[in-house]
Structures are given as C-alpha cells and as structure tokens.
C-alpha cells in the first residue's frame, strides 16, 4: 500500500468516501467498512487507529444515539416508546455511524501511508495549484514547531502561577490570553524572516515547481484504481436500483 503512487492513494480514498455515500443501509456499509479495515491491516496502520480509538468510538456512538431521534419510522422500539424512537431510526443511526467510521478511518489510512510532500505532489498532479500544496505542507511542518513552542509557553505561564483549570467559563477563556498571545506573537515575529528564507532558497510564487521524485503510475496503481472504479460503478448502479439505501424521512 505504501508503494502506491500518491495520486492512487488520494483517488482511492475519495472512492472510499464515494462508496460510503452510496449506501445508508448498515449491512452494505459494513461491507465497505470491512474493505477499509483490510486496507488498514495491509498498510500496518493499526497503531494510528489505536491512537484515535476513543475519538472514533465516541463519534460512532454519538451518531448511533442521535439519529434515531430525528428519523421517522413505523416500528417503535418498546423500551424507548415514549421518545418516538423506531427500529428504522436505529438502523439509520447505525448506518450513519458506520459511514462516519469509514470516512474517518479512510482519512487515517491516507495519512498513515502518505507523506505531506507526497500529498502536495499528488494534489498538483491532480490539478490543484502547486502553491496550495506547498502552503499545506509548510503549515503542516510548522504545526509541529508551534506545538513545541506551545508546550514552552504553557510551562512558562504555569511557572508564573497561571492556572487555566479553575474559574468559570469566562474566566477560563480570559486565562487563555497569556497562552495564545506569545504563541501568535512568536510566529508573526518570524513572518518577514520566513518569507526572506523562502526566497533566499529560490522559492517564488510565480516560479514553476518541478518535482524530481519519480511519480509514474505503475501496474499496481492501475489495478487499484480499476478495482475502485468498478466498485464505485456497481455501487452507483445499486443505489440507482434502490438497493442498500434506507428511507430517511425527518
């Protein structure tokens, strides 16, 4: 999976998102989810899923719990009879929860197998201006630096007695001023220097960027993209036939 071209990975993930949007029935979405799980296993991206485990479970649970209250149905759930919750609503909730999981884990798969530069290169090859890709990769790189600086800022202010965990909502919000200002000030103080650094190394917005990394599509890329195209075609046809979709009336 890691050997695939960046374009293949981006298009495959977009295909996965498309598959998830084709269906709303949890049975069909479970099939798509299985495919994503397979991809994650083959890519050995399990560690990243484990890091996000709690968040994804929370989001899944949230979707499952909320949708039944907004979807109409005919078969009431006996235990929740008074709340207007129906089995059809629960099914929709499960489907939407699975759709959310597929999308999130698909995104994690892409980020686990692709470097920021690969993403920038692939996006340029797919027609997105290179400057946008460059800004994205630059910002991604600076996030790490700012997070490091942020730790320093928090420690410096805590050492001076700042405690953001106490007080009411407004007090707490106000207490963030000494944390946010040094971080922004530290970054903006460097803006002119960063612009000078970039131009000193030959960057200019009007200059054309040529990527030197070999970015040729190989047989495995065509195979993966073909499989995804077929799956999407079949899924769209199924949806056209009304298969795998639930009646979602609010």
């Amino acid at each position: 999976m890691h050997q695939l071209d960046g374009r293949t990975k981006v298009l495959t993930v977009l295909g996965v998102f498309g598959l998830a949007l084709c269906f709303s029935d949890p049975v069909y979405l479970l099939g798509v989810f299985g495919g994503v799980m397979g991809g994650l296993t083959m890519s050995q991206a399990g560690a990243n899923i484990r890091k996000m485990w709690m968040l994804t479970v929370l989001l899944f649970g949230y979707s499952v719990a909320l949708w039944p209250f907004f979807v109409e149905g005919v078969t009431p759930v006996p235990v929740l009879h008074g709340l207007g919750v129906t089995w059809e609503g629960v099914r929709v909730g499960l489907g939407m929860g699975l759709r959310l999981l597929i999308m999130l884990w698909g995104g994690i798969w892409l980020l686990s197998t692709t470097t920021v530069e690969e993403l920038a290169h692939a996006s340029q090859q797919l027609g997105i201006p290179s400057r946008a890709g460059f800004v994205f990769s630059l910002a991604f790189r600076w996030v790490g630096m700012l997070l490091g600086a942020g730790v320093g800022v928090v420690q410096a202010q805590r050492s001076r007695g700042l405690d953001v965990s106490t007080g009411g909502i407004l007090q707490r919000i106000r207490k963030y001023v000494p944390l946010v200002i040094p971080l922004i000030g530290h970054a903006l103080r460097q803006t002119n220097l960063l612009a000078m650094s970039l131009e000193s190394k030959g960057f200019h917005p009007s200059a054309t960027r040529h990527f030197y990394s070999t970015g040729k599509l190989r047989a495995q890329d065509y195979t993966v993209m073909s499989v995804m195209l077929i799956l999407l075609g079949v899924s769209l046809w199924l949806r056209w036939q009304g298969v795998g979709t639930l009646d979602m009336r609010f």
Binding site: F136, L146, I184, N192
Partner: peptide, 16 residues
C-alpha cells in the same frame, strides 16, 4: 511570498 507565509502561519497557528 509574505502572504503565502502568512497563510501557512495562520493555518499552523489555528491548528496548533
């Protein structure tokens, strides 16, 4: 270039 740097910085600050 400065606006590009600012764009990346605001993105990084926002995310950080």
């Amino acid at each position: 270039t400065r606006q590009i740097v600012l764009t990346a910085q605001i993105a990084a600050i926002y995310a950080a």
